[in-house]
Amino acid sequence: MAKDGIHPQWYPEAKVYCNGELVMTVGSTKPELHVDVWSGNHPFYTGTQKIIDTEGRVERFRRKYGMGGAKKSTGGDK
């Protein structure tokens, strides 16, 4: 059994706001939550994610593990 008086107030219908707009309700210890990013506007979930690669790291990774159009060199041309 939980002890009385040691747990925070629980709000089963806490409202989550993003940019001033109600986006969902969740259970929380606060009645309102204000967030900058949620699954409805996060680039990973919306499919608009872009990989920024200024140093060629992504391409090097893809070549190393065979995940891309570039073929792995055999080591003859260094």
Rank of each mutant, 00 (worst) to 15 (best):
M1G: 06
M1A: 03
M1D: 10
A2F: 09
A2D: 13
A2I: 02
K3Q: 04
D4Q: 13
G5K: 05
I6P: 05
H7Y: 06
P8I: 05
Q9M: 03
W10H: 11
W10G: 05
Y11V: 10
Y11N: 13
Y11I: 10
Y11D: 09
P12E: 15
P12G: 12
P12L: 14
E13F: 15
A14H: 13
A14Q: 12
K15I: 14
K15F: 07
K15N: 15
K15S: 15
V16F: 08
V16A: 00
V16N: 10
V16T: 06
C18S: 13
C18H: 06
C18D: 03
C18A: 08
C18G: 12
N19G: 12
N19E: 06
N19P: 14
N19F: 09
E21P: 06
L22Y: 12
V23N: 02
V23D: 03
V23W: 05
M24P: 00
M24K: 10
V26Q: 04
V26W: 09
V26G: 02
G27H: 04
S28I: 08
T29F: 10
T29Y: 10
T29R: 03
T29L: 07
K30Y: 09
K30L: 15
K30S: 07
P31E: 08
P31D: 08
L33H: 09
L33Y: 05
H34R: 14
V35S: 02
V37P: 04
W38N: 10
W38E: 00
W38K: 01
G40S: 03
N41Y: 14
N41T: 06
N41I: 07
H42Y: 04
P43S: 07
P43R: 13
Y45C: 11
T46H: 14
T46K: 12
G47D: 09
T48G: 10
Q49G: 07
Q49N: 05
Q49Y: 11
K50T: 10
I51V: 02
I52T: 02
D53I: 12
D53M: 11
T54K: 08
E55D: 07
E55W: 00
R57V: 03
R57Q: 09
V58G: 01
V58I: 07
E59K: 03
E59A: 04
R60L: 02
R60N: 00
F61Q: 01
R62C: 00
R62V: 00
R62L: 02
R62Y: 00
R62D: 00
R63T: 00
R63C: 00
R63G: 02
R63Q: 01
K64F: 01
K64H: 03
K64G: 00
K64W: 01
K64E: 01
Y65T: 00
Y65V: 00
Y65Q: 01
M67L: 15
G68Y: 04
G68K: 06
G68D: 03
G68I: 00
G68L: 05
G69N: 08
G69M: 12
A70H: 04
K71R: 08
S73R: 06
S73I: 05
G75V: 14
G75R: 06
G76V: 15
G76P: 09
D77I: 14
D77E: 15
K78T: 14
